[in-house]
Amino acid sequence: MTIEERRARIGRRPGFVLPAIYWVVIAVTLVPIVAMIAYSFNIAPNHRITFVWHGFTLAYYLHLTDLSGLWQAFLVSVVIAVLSALISLVIGLPLALALDRYRFRGRSLIWGIVFVDISAPSIVVGAASLSFFLTINLHTGFLTILLVHVAFNVAYVVVTLRSRLSGMGTVLEEAASDLGARPIPAFFTITVPLLMPGIVASFMLALTMSIDDYVITSFVAGSSTTFPLFVYGAKTGMPPQVLCFGTIIFVAGALLALANGALNRKSSF
């Protein structure tokens, strides 16, 4: 009997309570998303969304970039997300390697910092970063957002990659080294390809963390505006384009996940 069969047997007890809980919970998590998608097609008199159904329209999708502030904020968010994910990958991968493959002084200390970095409340991180920038007299803006986003993304990247590395083992690398490969080329020809799923995953995680962050960014944004800041700041009502952006990102993300799932099913390892 394989592990999976044993596992499945535990689950074979009759019962509908657990599936019912699962599906009710999933339905609830999707309620605001369904509302978002539906209302992105509602005519919004005065350019602000209303409860009342005024009729179907594609106008806001066609005029997505008309709301210049929103469009710019979206671009700023995307640029910061991509840059911060790239930088945290470039500095986080070596750190993860160091933590996983070597024993050295300060290792547990760095691991502790990573841990605290992930678990510190966003509001404290934001406030602390702003107080730091104030004391060193650095003006807040695009640069400070990027600096801080990398600072929290590195921790996520390191934890994700390290867990992958420890699951991967060093057998192949040792084999390569026995065959006379030098460590650096071996790293790029053996470790990196093996680690690729983890690299992609941590890049996407960092991207998501950055693009969705409101709390920390609200402190260090200065005169820059990111997508969440714009949305949160829309105090005079929500422009329908915000819902269009949300819908497009959601649909694109869902499609990516589907495609990814299909790919992985073929080549599941």
Binding site: T29, P32, I33, M36, Y214, P228, V231, G246, A257
Partner: peptide
């Protein structure tokens, strides 16, 4: 899946 939408919007 819900995390694909900005939590502010949700």
């Amino acid at each position: 899946m819900s995390l694909l939408v900005s939590f502010i919007i949700r």
